[in-house]
Design a protein around this nucleic acid. Sequence first.
RNA 1: GGCCCCAUAGUCUAGCGGUUAGGACGUCGGCCUCUCACGCCGAAAACAAGGGUUCAAGUCCCUUUGGGGUCACCA
Length: 481
Amino acid sequence: MSRPVRVRIAPSPTGDPHVGTAYIALFNYVFAKKMGGKFVLRIEDTDQTRARSDSEQMIFDALRWCGLSWDEGPDVGGPYAPYRQSERSQHYRDAAGTLLEKGEGYRCFCTEDRLAKLRLQQQAEKTTLGYDRHCRTIAPAEAASRAAAGESHVVRLKVPVSGPIEFTDKLRGTITRDAKEIDDQVLLKSDGMPTYHLANVVDDHLMEITHVIRAEEWISSTQKHVLLYRAFGWEAPEFIHMPLLRNTDKSKISKRKHPVSINYYRDIGILPHAFLNFLGLMGWSFGGDREKFTLAEMIDVFSWDRMSLGGPVFDLDKLTWLNEQYIHDLSYEQLADALISWRLNREYLVKLLPLVRERIKKLDEVIPATEYFFSGDLDLTPVLPEMTVPEVAPAAVGKALLDYVERFEARDGFDKTMLEEVARQWTEALGWKTKHAFMLLRLATTGRKASPPLFDTMAVLGKEITRRRLRSAAAVLAKAK
RNA sequence: GGCCCCAUAGUCUAGCGGUUAGGACGUCGGCCUCUCACGCCGAAAACAAGGGUUCAAGUCCCUUUGGGGUCACCA
């Protein structure tokens, strides 16, 4: 393959900027730079039910904070624009039309209800799961007229009934699955939007992506993508599936068990270089016992044969140690700058001073009064005895805290109005007295019985710190007796 | 459960047929020191199991076990 190297990171704007996105972005970036190629950022926002309005910008900001930049993307443009899938609908509709014409795809009119029943039945009979190809035999002309009459439908891929489908993964060699294990994947949803499978193949082809570097979780659907390239008559890119970052229990890293937002690491005072360096240690090694290295050095020596494939556990202790090394290397001037760009700045002070001005009599009181605004994790031991709700077991109190987190996670943004609204609904659902519920939140988020107004405080602390403190409190309570 | 991926200390990893299995985090001990931290020195700690192949296996092959992923009109 002599085409110029083009790789992409394709995050979905469905929540907070994910550490896995940074991880995969890093390796895409490094490989692109190593090969003198281009690194593209493409937003995969085809799921309108899950899309969050503030998510896309947070992804840009978070990746830039890491020190990664892209040659083409929604915000910087480029020769293959647009880079937002929601703005590329016509491409996917055209592609689906092509498949229909070629007889490689077909319209499916099955209702969600029918599919749900089918799934239940298959579970009961313990037969292989998957679509039963009910609509595959409808004559194309009939299907076309039903569609023209406005009947709701999707477009599915006509997967071969059997036969081995294989592809080569650069890190793992040939991976084979039999077509009979693969069901007829939905390509175009009834709302006219493509699924990931269609969109990524169409876009990777149109954007002339040469190497698809993505997480291991995609391995099992790669055969579908190969089938799609084949159906279109397009050359498939090379596939490189990275290992998955893991929780301490080895499962795929997840927000219930581990901080996954890049912003969390930023907010607790991890330096971007340390963060990127640490991600570079996950599954990859520099060689020669070297653990501390810059992005430029990583690019310089980069090679895929230094990858190991066991899923690496994201170890906060080691990240913290590495961060310490970076901090100690900083000059005092640089450290001052780092602190200022972190939280010791006018912007943050202006945010929190409205909460403390009435509470101080002399300037010297501001630091002690706001200490928890500048901390990551708190030591809750001193206030643990206070963290009770009458008639409720500590473990249940902890669970309730988790429930509150779930509730605000489900909402856009992170402002005091939303936080209070959610808290009041939550309190009511629990049947607790407001003063007990709110004191609990106060103790968990500030470690103190007295604080500025709770929801203002949470808003200033930010989502990451707030979430982490509430989860930590829940964990402590779960262990309490 | 079917299919697929993976497998060196608690964790991140080096190793690419012949090593006393190396480094790092963490843990423990000591030194340094006005305290703490840093730093330095040291210790415990690993090739999942069983079969092959080979003069020789952590390294190659097979099986088992274990872990993970995936089975959506989510990505």
